[in-house]
Design a protein around this nucleic acid. Structure first.
Lengths: 148, 148
DNA sequence: TAAAATTACGCAAATCAGTTGCATTTATTA
DNA sequence: TAATAAATGCAACTGATTTGCGTAATTTTA
């Protein structure tokens, strides 16, 4: 397993590898995803990156990133559009990853939980099941610490 | 176990038991929930009940019903507000029921699945878990039959 | 059971997230 | 570097949900 050195990632390269244009905003956007511990909403992106950007461009960039296997949609407490980085194996052609998500009731952030074992269910009461989504609701580590 | 005779339910009584006003629209609305096999969106309610009603009143009635333990929110494929009946034990004070939901990829309806066993998880990777939501994506029974 | 108090209703208008069209700028390709 | 393609910003739009407010129906009280 290769550990990624967050200080020396070539974000332009990552965009190229996913067939995405290397504009200055998109380089900053993908870097922001890499530096964030949790998933991001449009609002969080706009108000936290240095680069001034229109919300329309954010929506369109997120769409393109998702289509090309760089990020994936995650659930959000308030049903907003929210994304997190995909595992490095993802691409536009192979874009499957099944993991649980944690919604923190305190800070409302969404985290990807990779070690929760998702059961395989093909059938239930006559229904044919193709996919299973699990959402864990609770407190993230930061919010527990801030209480103590 | 008491089987409910759907032809002879006193819907006014049900509203009273949940401390809700017995207006003609609300009686029709709760009856509509009892007669529906699946959960209901605002749009489905407005276009299917005989009583002419403003959408604002639907939203407010659904809100009141939920608050008083008569219905609960269920996930919706398009992130619309969608509700289903609660089990009869629910009230405004005790309004807990943990079951899985099926989203049918074909008809976009949401069904409550009561026999799917939801695992109990209190902790995961340092996160404290209070609740677990499971969404099964697949085909409902009606949609499978319509293909054959 | 009628008056008083509370709650629901309908309408119009507002809000809020997300989308679309289009002219302009930036990036990629040849 | 010119030609082509894609991204950006702005304005305007959509669709779901919410809010304000005057009126009507329901519930409570005397």
């Amino acid at each position: 397993m290769i550990l990624i050195d967050k200080e020396n990632i070539d974000f332009g390269m990552i965009l190229s590898q996913h067939a995405l244009s290397k504009t200055s905003f998109r380089k900053i956007l993908i870097e922001f995803f890499y530096r964030s511990k949790h998933s991001l909403s449009v609002e969080e992106i706009i108000s936290n990156i240095s680069h001034p950007v229109d919300k329309v461009s954010v929506y369109r960039a997120l769409n393109a990133f998702e289509k090309n296997g760089l990020i994936h949609k995650v659930p959000d407490k308030a049903n907003l559009i929210r994304y997190a980085l995909c595992p490095s194996e993802c691409s536009s052609s192979k874009h499957l990853h099944n993991h649980a998500h944690l919604l923190c009731s305190n800070c409302n952030e969404t985290y990807c939980i990779n070690d929760f074992k998702i059961p395989i269910v093909n059938e239930c009461k006559g229904f044919v099941i193709n996919n299973l989504k699990i959402i864990l609701e609770g407190s993230c580590i930061d919010c527990q610490q801030s209480y103590s």
